[in-house]
Design a binder for these strands. Structure first.
Lengths: 102, 102
DNA sequence: TAAAAGGTTCGATGGTTGTCTAACTGACGT
DNA sequence: ACGTCAGTTAGACAACCATCGAACCTTTTA
């Protein structure tokens, strides 16, 4: 009973905050959109689309990962990013629950 | 054709950004939750619930208003705040459309 | 009119953060 | 082993922002 098994696990307060902050920066949001547009997005391709340094890209990807919005897997020397839609959906659900609820 | 008439008007890019930033600050999010919990929330009551100065409350309410998340009406010397759920729903819809789509 | 109370505006300040360059690590091919 | 390319890390800098106290405006009440 301590751990129920809901279809969508509730968002911890801390993660809710991380997600909100991750989504707040326009560039990071644009990166997320680019990642969402593909099933597997190689990081090197992001660098071609966005006029920012690789350090900045790396930083943003780290924040998106911390928030659970993106999963990044190293494959050889490349980094493949994939969006985690479950997290996004959990966030919107929690947002509506907190402030939209009835 | 230039202006369609969807049941929920699309969020302008600028407003989308304003909303995301408004939601990113934990205190502001908490204020929004408190406002959402009532149909009409007198500002003076927020000052009792939150340990921040009235200047800060005023600032946050302005940001929430700018984002369209809250409507504030002066009534006499009081300020009544009401949440605008349509905006919140438009935001979550746009968020899912941009990054959760299919 | 004066005082009190609710909100706003103004500076100032300290902390956060997006961005860069540079140096580093790790993987691949020759 | 070497050079190259992908990404990370560290440090620095500038811009932004949450917060405050103080001064101000407005409404109500005495």
């Amino acid at each position: 009973m301590t751990t129920r098994n809901p279809p969508r696990p509730a968002l911890a307060a801390k993660q809710f905050e991380l997600i909100a902050k991750a989504l707040a920066d326009p560039r990071r949001m644009a990166l997320l959109e680019a990642i969402a547009a593909k099933d597997e997005c190689p990081c090197v391709q992001l660098r071609q689309q966005f006029p920012v340094s690789k350090a900045t890209i790396s930083h943003h990807l780290k924040e998106l990962s911390r928030a659970g919005l993106v999963e990044a897997r190293r494959e050889g020397q490349f980094l493949n990013c994939e969006i985690r839609r479950e997290t996004l959906e959990a966030y919107t659900a929690e947002l509506l629950r907190r402030a939209g609820g009835r």
